[in-house]
């Protein structure tokens, strides 16, 4: 049987634990999401989309916030999103991040250990206990969106949590209904 992770289940699990009343949980400006440092932003059936990269100012706030919230780290190398310079000095930026494949996910398909489970709405969820750090998923993604954490020896898998989109002031990254 195929294992599908429902973000909604995670959310309701947190509700039961009383995290919504946790004063440390930070309500966003738009109140669309709930950020907790434990698991990032909870989004029910939403998917991260690269939208208007011509508007990107190269501030890297998406990378910073992803690394802090999801990896508890200041290093941009820990971010699931990468922003690259494309072209000349005043050229546009490119975002490299999981595009949330539906159907067969190449990264999951390449994993010999079943460590990447399909995520509801698109993309995958990492099951760390099953991952051996073989990097097959890194090589399998045509988009180059699977980053690797050499400290934990595991891939950095985008959760489509949306924290990067929250810290994007120019609408380059946005969350969409799956």
């Amino acid at each position: 049987m195929k294992l599908i992770f429902k973000t909604g289940v995670l959310a309701s699990g947190l509700l039961k634990q009383g995290s919504l009343s946790n004063p440390e949980a930070i309500q966003s400006r738009e109140s669309k999401y709930l950020i907790t440092l434990e698991i990032g932003v909870l989004n029910i059936a939403k998917i991260l989309k690269i939208k208007e990269m011509r508007r990107c100012i190269g501030c890297f706030s998406c990378m910073t916030s992803c690394a802090v919230v999801n990896r508890h780290n200041h290093s941009l190398a820990k971010s699931a999103v990468r922003i690259m310079t494309a072209g000349d000095l005043s050229g546009r930026m490119a975002a490299i991040v999981c595009v949330g494949c539906t159907g067969i996910r190449a990264c999951a398909e390449a994993c010999p250990y079943g460590a990447l489970a399909d995520r509801e709405g698109g993309g995958v969820t990492l099951l760390p206990d099953k991952c051996t750090g073989c990097r097959n998923c890194v090589a399998a993604c045509t988009f180059g969106a699977v980053n690797f954490d050499s400290t934990t020896n595991k891939p950095i898998i985008c959760k489509h949590c949306g924290v990067c989109a929250q810290f994007c002031t120019h609408g380059c990254l946005e969350m969409e209904e799956a």
Partner: peptide
């Protein structure tokens, strides 16, 4: 640079706030 810079757990919440 690509080193890991873990945020000490004691500082994490206040730092992010």
């Amino acid at each position: 640079g690509d080193r890991s810079i873990p945020i000490p757990p004691a500082h994490l919440k206040e730092y992010f706030k």
